[in-house]
Design a protein around this nucleic acid. Structure first.
Length: 537
RNA sequence: GCCCUCGUAGCUCAGCCGGAUAGAGCAACGGAUUUCUAAUCCGUAGGCCACAGGUUCGAAUCCUGUCGAGGGUACCA
């Protein structure tokens, strides 16, 4: 719809010789209905370039467009805004498309044939997922959905490391608890994992094997890993997240991929040795600091496998690789991207979405989350408390850059009044009306939908398609959450004022088509967010 | 110290690649139900958009500085 107008605007600008290729023509929906259905500020933008009165420019454009049957009328207002009122027929036709496409409405082909890899969660299996992981998990899954709605072929990947020091300490922690249960002498490891779940794992081993494991070196780590991973995937399952692949950092060692990266960097003179360690010469390519890639102990830092992993992603043939990181990775990824670029790959294929952390408040005090110290609230506990829909909505409703404060007590209290219920309720209300209707929805006359609130709602519905494209470009899914809330609100207001089914059969039919369209958009929007659309509440 | 993100109503936050009168939910107060679901709607109250400069027709939005919060910071991930 907006595209149509922009095209017409462009044409007239070209005819008037006002057009400039780098001119961004934007059409917006004004908040105030006095300013028409849609409005544009092109004349204001042009006045600076052309050094000409914006009112005069607007007048010229208006004259050009006046003949078009897209518009009912065009007004010039304020300092030079062009305000358009559209011809009703040109907008109500959209409803037919919504009804026809139904579940498919909103899908598009902007990413058709694109292979997209979304990497998220990627928590090492040292403990259960916490509410801190929730944000990245929901964000990654929702973005994946969005890419799919834009026609992409999406793989969801979980990157993890089951080797390394952390996992060793984990194994030692389980062993210590096992020995404790067996009434043997034990020493709890320095910086060990203190959570209850360690006891659970040790207990299970005790029950199954008695005291026969006292001298076993490997079983504790292996069992812990398996058990924790099962716990993690169960949790993810509960919020309807599943992965296409799990990528183990280990394979980058086994296949020597990390050493290939070192060799290639060395060839380019981007690696040097100092203090017995191997360094990435970041400052040579514009990075702020040089960084250690291989420690003096011979062990790589996390940065090196990260680099190898990203090279690998591109070699696997993905057109777009999206990483979902918490703010703590802020500093690391530019090095990774730089190296990918230096090794001759197209680093623009890698997009990194950084989300800020959530501060957990307990009785007004901030809780520091630590897996090791077990001072965390698990994602499972939150799901138990409020359910999957609320969890998913809560984590996606705010911008990725907002530093959320999250008070668990308030979240529980508010769960009854959570905005997600408001949206779902709008859907349920519509479904009730539709189920009570026995009119055949055919031969309807959409021009009867001519009230102010109906027109505005139709505009809102039309926005949905554009939104799906926009979110995949900006990677900011919170605008969909906001959109659905606004749409639901508009519907609730409409519902309070108007009856859908009335004595007027003609009007009833057109309104049934109307609200069915609304329900489809809500349903599809919720589907993208991974949230259910119940028919009754 | 330096780098990144943020600061909007009592609280939690939208809005931010400049646009017309700054929004929502919660909390407070007052109203609406013979009606397709009141998990709803209508109204009242609540603001120096942290602060100070700058850019211009126009700034919550862009730039600079100050203050405050969170994160990172050269062999932990």
């Amino acid at each position: 719809m907006k595209d149509l107008i922009i095209n017409q605007l462009k044409e007239s600008l070209v005819e008037l010789d006002y057009y400039d290729t780098d001119l961004q023509i934007s059409i917006s929906t004004p908040k105030n209905k006095e300013f028409g259905d849609l409005s544009s500020n092109v004349a204001l933008l042009l006045s600076k370039r052309l050094n000409k009165n914006p009112l005069e420019i607007a007048g010229d454009i208006k004259n050009k467009l006046d003949g078009s049957d897209l518009f009912k009328d065009i007004n010039i207002a304020g300092p030079g805004f062009l305000n358009f009122n559209l011809n009703p027929d040109s907008i109500t036709n959209e409803l037919k498309e919504i009804i026809n496409l139904n579940d498919e409405y909103g899908k598009n082909n902007t990413l058709k044939d694109q292979k997209v890899l979304v990497e998220f969660v990627s928590a090492n299996p040292t403990g259960p997922l916490t509410v801190g992981h929730g944000r990245g998990a929901i964000l990654g899954d929702t973005l994946s959905n969005i890419f799919q709605w834009n026609g992409a072929n999406v793989d969801r990947e979980y990157y993890y490391n089951n080797a390394g020091r952390q996992m060793r300490v984990l194994g030692e922690s389980v062993r210590a608890r096992y020995l404790e249960i067996q009434k043997e002498n034990y020493e709890f490891p320095e910086g060990g994992y203190e959570g209850e779940y360690i006891y659970d794992i040790a207990n299970d081993l005790s029950k199954e094997f008695g005291n026969t494991l006292i001298d076993n070196d490997t079983i504790f780590k292996e069992t812990a890993e398996k058990s924790i991973f099962k716990n993690i995937t169960n949790t993810l399952d509960r919020i309807h997240i599943s992965f296409d692949s799990f990528f183990n950092e280990n394979t980058l060692y086994e296949n020597k991929d990390i050493y290939t990266v070192i060799d290639q960097l060395r060839e380019k003179g981007l690696v040097y040795d100092k203090d017995n360690a191997t360094w990435f010469h970041g400052t040579k390519v514009g990075r702020e600091n040089d960084r250690v890639l291989i420690k003096s102990t011979g062990e790589p830092t996390y940065r090196l496998p990260d680099m190898a992993y990203h090279v690998k992603k591109i070699e696997r043939g993905y057109d777009l690789c999206v990483d979902i990181f918490g703010a703590d990775h802020m500093d690391a990824y530019p090095d990774v991207i730089e190296v990918v670029k230096q090794l001759g790959h197209d680093a623009s294929k890698i997009k990194v979405v950084i989300h800020q952390f959530i501060s957990i408040l307990n009785q007004g005090k901030q809780v520091k989350m630590s897996t090791r110290k077990a001072t965390f609230i698990t994602l499972d506990e939150l799901i138990d408390e409020v359910g999957s829909d609320v969890v998913r909505y809560f984590f996606i409703m705010r911008g990725v850059n907002s530093h959320l404060n999250f008070d668990l007590e308030i979240a529980k209290e508010k769960s009854e009044k959570n905005p997600i219920f408001y949206i779902q309720y709008a859907y349920a209300r519509i479904m009730t009306i539709l189920s009570k209707n026995d009119l055949a929805i055919e031969n309807y006359n959409l021009s009867l939908l001519n009230q102010e609130d109906e027109i505005k709602l139709i505009y809102k519905l039309i926005e949905f398609k554009e939104l799906v494209v926009k979110i995949s470009k900006d990677m900011e899914p919170q605008i969909l959450a906001t959109y659905l809330l606004e749409l639901a609100s508009m519907f609730h207001k409409y519902y309070a004022k108007n009856r859908v089914i009335s004595d007027n059969e003609e009007l009833s039919k057109s309104r049934l088509v109307f609200i069915q369209s609304i329900s489809i958009v809500i349903k599809n929007g919720l589907k993208i967010l991974g949230i259910s659309a119940p028919k009754k509440m």
